[in-house]
């Protein structure tokens, strides 16, 4: 008898799946593109949260960023739709099946330029979605023109200077009704992962603006969305720690040093104070704070705003548990008597 060495047990998450089962197709984006790093964090977040991939639906508009849903969660349905219109498509899908976990990956051009109208209305509706804006300040896929999030005075490789003010999607998110708003940087693995997990646990619209440098068209001197600019100007609001609902480890909290935000599924976000004490549930202060820091050239990152109380649009529709898309004919076609009654009224 020969002894075969048993292979080391495969690492699995709490529902028994390996990280491999959260991967997608091979990326076709440029090496070093910030979008790829975000994809990696998305994979880790879903894996670590133990989400069933089949329950997830992935959406995007058009752009390099919008290609990303093909690179994670292969066993979730995905829809690479129309430039700037993923809010409508994902809203429709959530109406059809409110049990889905919807994630949208968009770009700054996709969201803040062509899609700004739909984006605004999605915010008002607070559709339960994880909405990620992979923000590089340019249109990557059409080779580097400015988008509407490009900062005033930013310079393209060709020397063209942007002389229009930027749209801040986080300000819009807080102003118009998103219920979890965060900004992060594709290079900050730890922070981004914690934010993504919080967004998965949140029941409502999460808007995540993630600065994601375009190595090919916007990573030069003069860009405000480059790796080196972010290294110098990124200022985390707090050190983030995400404690999932299924992990009941009590950690010693030093008095006054940490704020806790409880999320819908019982998970908790621990915000460890850095420079200042920041309360992400105070809407007006959050707005002021972002305005102030922007004028001093600082990119504040972290959880900017959380609202655990606002109802989602789907909550207002008086829907039952079964998704509308699965209702049988008996529920969706009124009977003969109803038609007879209507006809009698019209006689």
């Amino acid at each position: 008898m020969s002894t075969t060495a048993t292979p080391p047990p495969k690492k699995v998450n709490r529902i028994g799946l390996e990280v491999l089962q959260y991967r997608g197709g091979k990326t076709t984006l440029c090496a070093g593109c910030g979008h790829n790093a975000i994809t990696e964090r998305i994979i880790e977040a879903f894996y670590e949260m133990g989400v069933e991939p089949y329950k997830v639906a992935k959406f995007s508009g058009i752009g390099c960023s919008s290609k990303s849903p093909a690179y994670f969660l292969n066993s979730a349905h995905g829809f690479n739709s129309v430039h700037g219109r993923a809010p409508a498509v994902s809203t429709g899908a959530m109406l059809a099946n409110h049990n889905l976990i919807g994630i949208v990956v968009s770009g700054d051009g996709d969201t803040a330029s062509i899609g700004i109208g739909q984006f605004m209305h999605m915010l008002r509706r607070n559709i339960p979605l994880i909405y990620i804006i992979e923000n590089n300040g340019v249109y990557g896929l059409t080779k580097g023109q400015f988008s509407a999030t490009a900062d005033l005075g930013a310079r393209l490789k060709t020397g063209i200077v942007n002389d229009l003010p930027a749209i801040d999607t986080c300000l819009a998110g807080i102003e118009l009704g998103a219920t979890l708003v965060a900004r992060s940087f594709s290079g900050d693995k730890r922070q981004l992962l914690a934010i993504l997990k919080a967004a998965i646990a949140h029941k409502g619209l999460s808007v995540l603006d993630v600065i994601s440098p375009c190595t090919t068209f916007n990573d030069h001197e003069g860009s405000t969305k480059s790796y080196s600019y972010m290294k110098d100007h990124d200022e985390p609001l707090h050190e983030l720690d995400f404690v999932p609902f299924y992990q009941d480890i009590s950690v010693e909290i030093a008095e006054g040093e940490v704020r806790e935000v409880e999320l819908h599924d019982g998970s908790r976000l621990r915000l460890k104070k850095l420079e200042r004490d920041y309360d992400p549930t105070d809407r007006i202060r959050a707005l002021n704070f972002i305005h102030e820091s922007a004028s001093s050239g600082v990119v504040l990152t972290g959880i900017l705003y959380v609202d655990n109380k606002r109802k989602t649009f789907l909550d207002m529709l008086n829907l039952g548990d079964a998704p509308l898309g699965t209702l049988p004919e008996a529920k969706t076609r009124p009977d003969q008597r109803d038609l007879d009654l209507i006809m009698e009224e019209l006689r």
Binding site: F59, G92, A96
Partner: peptide, 9 residues
Amino acid sequence: GMVIGASWA
């Protein structure tokens, strides 16, 4: 767009 998303789902 919502119709397309809803039908898809």
